[in-house]
């Protein structure tokens, strides 16, 4: 799992979301990915109990961006003790919306023939970055000017010794688009846009100083509470 190649979407390695000792022997590990417009929850289910597991189902609580399973959890045969099954559950964003704290928190219920189990996980915001997130240049300039300075957040991305073009290409693989590039006094400045599945636009300026290993990210958005999660996404993508 994971891809370090340029232009490929960033995918984090799976982590354990539900330890077997908390779920009567059912262990669930997972990660999230987005591939050409399809969001997936990529799961490994392991039966660490002494009995067979069957009748699996999954449900999400209401969440900030309406993430919901787009299909039932399909496990075709009962899961024998010590058996593991790998599942890619397609998700959509047309579920019920309720603002969560943190914003990217997802509460999940999984049922089998033994019981119902609950866990929470955090999803990376970039699974919500849509493919048509490149803003028109004129619109970008107008929107940048229009969003008040109080809505600008700045972040440092440390230790990323990549060129402007390499960073731009990596980010584009996860639907962060470079609208314009300038070089001022030796600094590369990238103006970038992205759009979330709920239609929120995010504008960014990324500064790259040749010879300096860090990047400076400025984020402007009409919904500034998303900015720290956008920064986290940048971190994950450029370091993937």
């Amino acid at each position: 799992v994971g891809s370090g190649r340029l232009g490929q979407p960033a995918v984090a390695p799976r982590t354990v979301w539900l330890p077997a000792m908390k779920a009567k022997g059912l262990e669930i590990s997972g990660t999230f990915s987005r591939q050409v417009g399809t969001i997936s929850m990529d799961l490994l289910l392991t039966n660490k109990a002494l009995q067979v597991m069957s009748d699996f189902a999954i449900q999400f609580n209401r969440n900030s961006f309406g993430l919901a399973p787009a299909a039932p959890l399909q496990i075709h045969a009962p899961l024998a003790p010590n058996q593991t099954v790998e599942i890619s559950l397609p998700l959509n964003t047309v579920g019920s919306v309720m603002k969560m704290e943190p914003l990217n928190n997802l509460q999940v219920a999984v049922k089998n023939n033994i019981d119902v189990f609950y866990f929470s996980t955090l999803y990376p915001l970039h699974i919500l970055f849509v493919e048509d997130g490149k803003m028109e240049r004129q619109m970008f300039l107008a929107t940048w000017k229009d969003i008040p300075n109080e809505n600008e957040a700045q972040f440092q991305i440390k230790e990323c010794p990549l060129s402007a073009d390499a960073v731009s290409s990596k980010l584009q693989g996860s639907n962060i688009f470079t609208v314009a590039k300038r070089n001022v006094e030796g600094q590369d400045m990238l103006y970038q846009s992205l759009k979330l599945t709920n239609g929120i636009w995010v504008l960014a300026e990324l500064r790259i100083q040749p010879g300096s290993p860090g990047l400076m990210l400025s984020v402007k958005c009409r919904a500034p509470e998303v900015s720290p999660y956008v920064y986290q996404a940048y971190e994950t993508i450029v370091k993937n």
């Binding site: 300039l141 314009a180 300038r182 001022v184 600094q187 400045m189 103006y191 300026e205």
Partner: peptide, 20 residues
């Protein structure tokens, strides 16, 4: 010519951000 205006506007934006 319109695109030249946009090019110029981005240059001004980048300049203003570097030397506010």
């Amino acid at each position: 010519e319109m695109d030249d205006g946009l090019e110029e506007a981005f240059s001004r934006l980048a300049q203003s951000r570097t030397n506010p």
